[in-house]
Amino acid sequence: MAEVTNELMFELMKRMHQEIGGLRLDIREVKPELSSMRGTIVSMQNDIHNIYGVLGRQDDRLDRIERRLDLRELAEPLSAYNPHP
Score class of each variant (00 low, 15 high):
Met1Ser: 12
Glu3Thr: 10
Glu3Ser: 06
Glu3Asp: 10
Val4Arg: 04
Val4Lys: 04
Thr5Trp: 12
Thr5Gln: 09
Asn6Thr: 05
Asn6Leu: 07
Asn6Gln: 04
Asn6His: 07
Glu7Ala: 13
Leu8Gln: 05
Met9Pro: 00
Met9Val: 13
Glu11Arg: 12
Leu12His: 11
Leu12Val: 02
Met13Glu: 15
Lys14Gln: 14
Met16Asn: 14
Met16Lys: 13
Met16Pro: 01
Met16Phe: 07
Met16Gly: 07
His17Tyr: 13
His17Asn: 12
Gln18Glu: 14
Ile20Gln: 12
Gly21Tyr: 03
Gly22Leu: 12
Leu23Asn: 15
Leu23Phe: 15
Leu23Met: 14
Arg24Ala: 10
Arg24Lys: 15
Leu25Ala: 15
Leu25Trp: 02
Asp26Pro: 00
Asp26Met: 13
Arg28Asp: 15
Glu29Phe: 03
Glu29Lys: 10
Val30Asp: 05
Val30Ile: 13
Val30Asn: 03
Lys31Gly: 00
Lys31Tyr: 15
Lys31Cys: 04
Pro32Gly: 01
Pro32Cys: 01
Pro32Ser: 02
Leu34Val: 11
Ser35Phe: 05
Arg38Asn: 11
Arg38Glu: 14
Arg38Phe: 08
Arg38Pro: 00
Arg38Val: 13
Arg38Lys: 10
Gly39Ser: 14
Gly39Val: 03
Gly39Ile: 01
Gly39Lys: 14
Thr40Val: 00
Thr40Gly: 01
Thr40Leu: 09
Ile41Cys: 04
Val42Gly: 01
Val42Lys: 07
Met44Phe: 05
Met44Tyr: 09
Asn46Lys: 11
Asn46Glu: 15
Asp47Glu: 12
Asp47Gly: 05
Asp47Gln: 12
Ile48Trp: 02
Ile48Cys: 10
His49Ala: 13
His49Trp: 12
Asn50Lys: 09
Asn50Arg: 11
Asn50Asp: 11
Ile51Met: 08
Ile51Lys: 03
Tyr52His: 10
Tyr52Gln: 09
Leu55Trp: 04
Leu55Ile: 10
Gly56Cys: 06
Arg57Trp: 03
Gln58Pro: 00
Gln58His: 09
Gln58Ala: 08
Gln58Asn: 11
Asp59Thr: 09
Asp59Asn: 12
Asp59Lys: 13
Arg61Tyr: 08
Arg61Glu: 13
Arg61His: 07
Asp63Ala: 04
Asp63Val: 02
Asp63Trp: 05
Asp63Cys: 00
Arg64Leu: 11
Ile65Ala: 05
Ile65Trp: 03
Glu66Arg: 09
Glu66Asn: 09
Arg67Lys: 13
Arg67Tyr: 06
Leu69Ala: 05
Leu69His: 07
Leu69Gln: 09
Asp70Met: 08
Asp70Ser: 11
Leu71Gly: 04
Arg72His: 11
Arg72Tyr: 10
Glu73Arg: 06
Pro77Tyr: 00
Pro77Phe: 00
Leu78His: 12
Ser79Asn: 13
Ala80Cys: 04
Ala80Met: 07
Tyr81Cys: 04
Asn82Asp: 15
Asn82Trp: 02
His84Thr: 01
Pro85His: 01
Pro85Cys: 03
Pro85Asp: 03
